[in-house]
């Protein structure tokens, strides 16, 4: 009789597996750092991000001549502390990113579920709607609406949500449709389960893994979109801070004060990169076959390193 196989999905085991994957570990650490910075911004930021100090304008980072430890990453054209602005900017990016992903995700999953389960005309109507909206450039849509309605953080979130739900709907529909053909869903129908029970007990749990991958990827895309809108002046408005806004300000000083665009830019890049690496890890972990292959690769790597140590 086979022994109960460990499914390998206990939190401890997942953590160990994450720690074995260096890029994924570093990405997670960076994202966690970002979350902490955003939550604890008033305590960790050395300065108020909006306080101007015109005498301390365009100070370089501390390791360059003229820099000081007071402003580790230097100051901008109004003498505001770059590091503090990045920390507060993380707040904006995370808030916008998470809100949009939450709203678009909930809406998209619901619509996709309905389309897949009702099928027929409802399905083809919803899917044509998705296709139509996907074919429209969403940044253009956002710019148009923001120009007409005026910009506020809420408007930004709403407009990005309107442009972001379709991928969730499409993925949910696909997964629900294929899961409905699974033997155990048919068995549940034969047993006489009600439709809500079939959806919530038998079908939706299959959505967890792909949905988390997509949520992370979409989060990255939204962070980028918010930065782009703010850069174009249609997103977050001063005195609030945003990485995109900072880059917009910094571009006027790009030759004299490179640090104004570099550091917020790096923050954006690292956030996107981390999110993508983490999403890749989640996707591999959710696929049993890929997961075994990754394990075999890392096991082979460990063996090789151990052999080299013995030789040395």
């Amino acid at each position: 009789m086979p022994t109960p196989a460990s499914t390998g999905n206990s939190p401890g085991q997942l953590l160990r597996e994450l720690l074995r994957d260096r890029p994924a570990t570093l990405s997670t650490l960076f994202l966690l750092l970002l979350v902490f910075a955003a939550i604890l911004a008033p305590f960790v930021a050395p300065h108020d991000p909006a306080t101007q100090a015109l005498r301390a304008r365009l100070e370089p980072p501390f390791w360059l001549a003229g820099g000081s430890l007071d402003h580790i990453l230097g100051t901008d054209n109004l003498g505001r502390d770059v590091l503090s602005r990045i920390i507060y900017g993380a707040r904006t990016s995370l808030t916008v990113g998470l809100s949009v992903v939450a709203i678009a995700g909930t809406f998209g999953v619901t619509i996709g579920l309905v389309a897949a389960y009702v099928g027929g005309r409802v399905d083809s109507f919803v899917m044509s709607w998705v296709d139509t909206q996907l074919s429209f450039p969403d940044l253009l849509l956002a710019l148009t609406v923001l120009t007409v309605l005026g910009s506020s953080p809420t408007t930004v979130v709403v407009i990005l949500s309107i442009g972001g739900w379709m991928v969730f709907a499409r993925m949910t529909r696909g997964i629900v449709k294929s899961t409905r053909n699974e033997g155990y869903v048919e068995a549940a129908e034969l047993v006489g389960c009600s439709i809500p029970r079939i959806i919530f007990v038998h079908i939706l749990p299959n959505l967890a893994a792909p949905l988390s991958t997509l949520l992370i990827l979409e989060f990255a895309r939204i962070v980028l979109a918010e930065a782009a809108l703010s850069f174009l002046g249609m997103g977050i408005q001063p005195p609030a801070t945003s990485w995109g806004l900072d880059i917009a300000v910094g571009k006027d000083h790009i030759f004299g004060a490179w640090w104004l665009v570099t550091f917020p830019g790096a923050a954006i890049a690292l956030t996107i990169l981390s999110a993508n690496l983490l999403a890749a890890w989640v996707r591999t972990t959710a696929d049993p076959q890929e997961r075994e292959k990754r394990f075999a690769r890392s096991a082979a790597g460990r063996q090789m390193r151990a052999a080299r140590r013995v030789e040395a």
């Binding site: 699974e182 033997g183 048919e186 034969l190 389960c193 029970r197 038998h202």
Partner: peptide
């Protein structure tokens, strides 16, 4: 009228315990 299905690997929900699988008809009815 009940059914026994062909594929014993696909026809049981991998996320449920065996007790819950067998008891499901009792519960839903």
């Amino acid at each position: 009228i009940q059914a026994v299905m062909q594929d014993p690997y696909a026809s049981l929900n991998p996320r449920m315990r065996v007790t819950d699988i067998i008891a499901e008809p009792l519960v839903v009815h």
